[in-house]
Amino acid sequence: MSGNGNAAATAEENSPKMRVIRVGTRKSQLARIQTDSVVATLKASYPGLQFEIIAMSTTGDKILDTALSKIGEKSLFTKELEHALEKNEVDLVVHSLKDLPTVLPPGFTIGAICKRENPHDAVVFHPKFVGKTLETLPEKSVVGTSSLRRAAQLQRKFPHLEFRSIRGNLNTRLRKLDEQQEFSAIILATAGLQRMGWHNRVGQILHPEECMYAVGQGALGVEVRAKDQDILDLVGVLHDPETLLRCIAERAFLRHLEGGCSVPVAVHTAMKDGQLYLTGGVWSLDGSDSIQETMQATIHVPAQHEDGPEDDPQLVGITARNIPRGPQLAAQNLGISLANLLLSKGAKNILDVARQLNDAH
């Protein structure tokens, strides 16, 4: 009898209710805020589980004197976190989706994509230029951005401005803007500013005609071990179906173009009346040469937790077992079709030249 009692006690200790789920994140304040929001949602869904947040620095956090596009290494903000995932030191990792490459290392998958916040870019102005827009900034004003995508589009749109690289986390960039006289304004992701509670610093939100956004911008991705079915089931509740389908289309477009950090590629997606609209573009580094096109596809946005595919093969690095396969494939095909259209119009040449120029500098 006593033996059975011990077995029952052991089973209770090993039951999922007692389990601590370890969540990996970057150390920056924004990353911690984003991770806290994901953990809060998981806690609400699984009140019996405990969650421990483990923060670590990544290569991208450490190399702050070089433009991201020049470092010449993929997975700048993800490699150390993936290493911890691989060694079973954490069970899942919360990322900004735009930091996750469209091809993940073997053994990993994006197990959830959370509801997207505003994906557009924002302009934050130096205190002396508050009330201005990019259009009304004085001639030769210097605007800071760490992104080739932003610089290429904005140089084309605002030729009277000069664009220079600015690195560091959000706090560091804002301090550089406010305390030094080098920059009249800087460009940042609206979602990051909003998550930090800095709505009052948003001086201008850039519309798609001015600057399309990065693939996955404004959404959070939760990376897990691809074979860890328990954790895949656990994080599945975080999937937002519309965000998922938009981001599958965007990531398929980028992957098929073979774009990345070192080339200016941008997108804009919208879901309306059962249609998914995808606009994508590529630019030369100075913005003088560009190709942009829009395509659409009829896609039914499923309700969360309709029964999805059981075999769960990944699409552009994403596993969404609780979302039907048909809409996911339709979104992926839309991204591939748009990429093929741009490639047929000469996108590869623009991107190759951009890559060579970026590598040469």
Rank of each mutant, 00 (worst) to 15 (best):
R175P: 02
T66E: 13
A249H: 01
K74F: 08
S75Q: 09
T109K: 13
L351R: 07
V130D: 15
S337M: 05
L238Q: 08
R156D: 07
E258N: 02
L341Y: 07
K345E: 09
E117Y: 11
L245V: 10
Q180C: 15
I248C: 00
T269P: 01
E52T: 11
K87T: 12
S344V: 06
D286R: 12
R325N: 05
Q50G: 06
C211P: 01
V143A: 13
V301T: 03
A354N: 01
T243F: 00
E293R: 07
S290F: 12
P302C: 12
H83T: 13
Q275Y: 00
P105D: 06
I231C: 03
T145P: 01
L206W: 05
L232G: 13
T109E: 02
L341H: 06
A320D: 09
D240W: 02
L154F: 07
D352G: 01
H83A: 13
G259Q: 01
K176V: 11
V38C: 09
D273E: 11
P327R: 03
D359F: 06
Q180H: 11
A249I: 02
A252Y: 02
R150G: 04
G111M: 01
E210M: 02
V123S: 08
G197P: 05
F108P: 15
Q314S: 05
Q356F: 04
Q181T: 13
R195Y: 10
P309K: 14
A226T: 09
T109Q: 07
H207I: 07
T298Q: 08
T58Q: 04
F51S: 06
T279E: 07
I166W: 12
G221F: 03
G216F: 05
I187V: 09
L334W: 07
Y277H: 15
F253R: 00
A320E: 11
L338Y: 00
E117M: 06
N340W: 15
R150N: 00
R173H: 04
G317A: 01
Q204L: 14
E210G: 04
G72Q: 04
S69A: 07
Q153E: 04
L76C: 14
T78C: 14
K345L: 10
H95P: 01
Y213V: 02
V353G: 07
V282E: 00
R173F: 01
R225K: 04
D307R: 06
Q180T: 10
E293G: 14
I299M: 15
Y46R: 08
L42H: 01
A270G: 06
L134G: 04
L174R: 07
V316Q: 01
N88C: 13
K176G: 05
H126G: 11
K62W: 07
N88G: 09
I299F: 14
S96Y: 05
Q356Y: 06
H239K: 05
Q296T: 05
N358I: 15
L170D: 01
A303Y: 06
R173L: 04
P309N: 15
L97Y: 00
I299S: 06
V353P: 07
V222K: 02
K87N: 12
D99A: 04
V124W: 05
N358R: 15
V90G: 02
H199T: 06
L232P: 06
A122R: 02
D240F: 11
T58G: 01
L285P: 15
T58M: 12
A40I: 08
R225P: 13
L276V: 14
K157D: 08
P309A: 10
G192E: 03
I187D: 01
R164K: 12
D178G: 13
